[in-house]
């Protein structure tokens, strides 16, 4: 490295650090300090430390009035089955699409990939769930999520399947392995890096979903974290009580942030190593 390039990279790091202050630092700090203030003090939205600490009361309110644990449980109950199902069903379909030469399968692949770009339609979805007697149930919500989020995983994984040589699967098939065995013992392990990236994108969108949830699982009993945050924030008739809203925002964001802290190398690595390449 010459002195010039070293100077440039130092300047670059400096710029990245400076830009991170308003971009990430100030928002995070504002949420944390204000979530520990009294309502009156938090209303000023200052970045100073609390003059009077009120953290215990605020966070207790999130757990008690905000029904935090129930909402967390509901979110897990929705997200985990959805992601498992999409990854498994999507991987199986991608294998078939990646290897098939038939016209019908090509069309099916195009339609499923297109579902990635096209917005799902809500009111007819509710009509359909009513017909199936699943309206307003967690199961109905999960089924809709599976059907509408399948596109991205099938799209990513099919591209990956096409880049894999067929010989391994073919040889295993000749040796008497059934298709299910080939899928679970050869294909699924080979697809795991791209399925991981797909699952990361899925969990981010499913965990944060508010629009669909508001229509499909109304009522507090099944409320996921975003629904719980919304009704908690709007529970007072006057303006937002920032101390409580920020405490809930922090608790709502925490599960994914914690998971990310442990898996960040794989998440960032998977997303930057071009797993998104078709």
């Amino acid at each position: 490295m010459t002195r010039r390039t070293r100077l440039f990279s130092t300047l670059r790091y400096l710029a990245l650090a400076l830009f991170a202050i308003p971009w990430v630092g100030v928002p995070v700090w504002m949420v944390i300090v204000n979530s520990m203030k009294l309502p009156g003090e938090a209303a000023a939205l200052d970045l100073t430390l609390p003059q009077q600490w009120n953290a215990t009361e605020n966070y207790t309110a999130v757990f008690v009035q905000g029904n935090y644990l129930q909402a967390l449980g509901n979110s897990l109950l929705v997200s985990l089955p959805t992601i498992l199902a999409v990854a498994l069903i999507g991987a199986a379909a991608s294998w078939a699409f990646g290897r098939s030469r038939s016209k019908g399968m090509q069309i099916a692949f195009y339609v499923i990939s297109l579902s990635m770009l096209m917005p799902p339609t809500l009111i007819p979805t509710i009509y359909l769930l009513r017909e199936l007697q699943l309206d307003g149930t967690t199961l109905g919500y999960i089924l809709v999520l599976i059907g509408t989020r399948m596109g991205i995983v099938v799209f990513l994984t099919t591209g990956f399947v096409r880049s894999m040589p067929e010989d391994l699967e073919a040889a295993a098939a000749i040796d008497g392995a059934s298709r299910l065995q080939v899928f679970f013992q050869i294909i699924l392990p080979l697809l795991s890096p791209v399925l991981f990236v797909g699952s990361v994108i899925l969990i981010i969108t499913v965990w944060g979903d508010f629009f669909f949830a508001q229509f499909l699982i109304p009522g507090s009993g099944r409320a996921t974290l975003p629904l719980s945050l919304y009704s908690f924030a709007n529970s007072s008739a006057q303006s937002l009580r920032w101390n409580l809203v920020f405490a809930h925002v922090l608790m709502t964001g925490l599960p994914l942030v914690l998971a990310f802290v442990f898996a960040q190398k794989r998440v960032i690595g998977g997303l930057t190593e071009g797993a998104l390449k078709g």
Binding site: A108, I112, T121, P124, Y127, V144, E169
Partner: peptide, 26 residues
């Protein structure tokens, strides 16, 4: 044998067909 696994795509086709395509038609 590998390429004839069309039915592996069936669950995905059913899910997308029922919960994505059908509502669009409705």
């Amino acid at each position: 044998i590998v390429r004839s696994g069309v039915w592996f795509a069936l669950p995905a086709i059913v899910f997308v067909g029922v919960f994505f395509v059908l509502p669009q038609l409705y």
